[in-house]
């Protein structure tokens, strides 16, 4: 659509800017403030320069959390994206059953995140949970509160359970937009199922899949509530991801300086990712217009 040039449109945007500035810019400035100052209590602050930044950048704890975070995001993406696409390809195309599938699949997405944690905390317990009990009866030595690997598997399976449907929904929406004529042409050319997927469905889904990957990457990058409820970051620090570590530091130990420096760097990473996301989004908008 051709947009009219009109700077007075700013007046319509003003309420949003004011509100978000109050709830985002103001708090963020507090963080910036803390990140360059130190205190001995009593609200007396003095300049600390980049001390906190170097401290955080050099700390083992931060490196470990960051490394765990990247590993976690990589693992869940590697599982959720192929699984989501596969399920979307298998879904009924339209009609009553398509609606039923959509509603049932969306259900985990609408559950409060700490309840998701609670569900899996219970589900995985050996004494009262279906999953833990079944595994124990099959002779698997499974205990997510003691064994780091089991804790990891539980958190990953929980995330797959929670968010794969997002990929399914987006991929399904992408598939719906493919005109029937494409499939008919493929049938005339006697294309195999794989070739239909590779040369028709995948290119048409590219835009939504990129959005799905970026959304999942970013949301998994700031995951907090679910693993916190299930494992509390443990055993030890096995499932302490970036957000969990940050909250521990800021609200648990009240180490304001390092926590603030940590926050800012965390935020910069997210900013960079958002920029990639935005570019992809606006590019796929343009591509959509061309088609």
């Amino acid at each position: 659509m051709e947009k009219t040039r009109n700077n007075r449109a700013w007046f319509m945007v003003l309420p949003v800017v004011a509100l978000v500035a109050f709830s985002a810019v103001l708090p963020l400035m507090t963080v910036v403030n803390y990140s360059v100052q130190d205190t001995f209590g009593n609200n007396v602050f003095f300049w600390a320069g980049t001390e906190w930044f170097t401290q955080v950048l050099e700390s083992e704890r931060m490196h470990d959390a960051l490394w765990r975070q990247f590993l976690f995001s990589a693992v869940i993406l590697a599982i959720e994206v192929p699984l989501g696409v596969a399920v979307a390809l298998c879904m009924p195309k339209k009609g009553f059953w398509a609606s039923v599938c959509l509603v049932l699949m969306a259900l985990p997405l609408l559950i409060p995140w700490n309840v998701v944690g609670t569900i899996w905390q219970v589900f995985g317990r050996v004494d009262i949970g279906l999953l833990g009990w079944t595994l124990a009866n099959l002779g698997v030595d499974y205990n997510y509160t003691q064994n780091p690997l089991d804790a990891w598997i539980t958190v990953v399976v929980m995330d797959v359970w929670h968010w794969t449907s997002l990929v399914v929904l987006l991929a399904y929406a992408g598939l719906q937009s493919i005109p029937q004529a494409y499939y008919q042409a493929a049938r005339i050319d006697q294309a195999s199922r794989w070739k239909v997927f590779r040369y028709i469905e995948l290119p048409k889904m590219k835009g939504v899949l990129l959005i799905a990957v970026l959304l999942r990457f970013m949301d998994s990058f700031m995951i907090y509530t679910e693993p916190f409820v299930v494992t509390g970051g443990g055993p030890g620090t096995a499932t302490t991801f970036l957000s969990i570590d940050l909250v521990k530091m800021a609200l648990g130990q009240f180490d304001l300086g390092p926590a603030a420096a940590f926050s800012l760097m965390y935020f910069l990473v997210i900013l960079l990712l958002s920029w990639v996301f935005y570019t992809v989004m606006t590019n796929s908008d343009k591509a959509g217009k061309g088609a």
Binding site: P27, V31, F221, M222, S243, L246, F267
Partner: peptide, 29 residues
């Protein structure tokens, strides 16, 4: 409907807030 001074930057800035980790904002809030 309109294009105005800084519209794209503003739109992007809004997005960054959707992507901001709540953990960063917990203490300042």
């Amino acid at each position: 409907r309109y294009s105005f001074l800084g519209d794209k930057h503003l739109f992007f800035w809004l997005l960054t807030n959707r992507m901001a980790p709540p953990a960063v904002f917990a203490l300042p809030f």
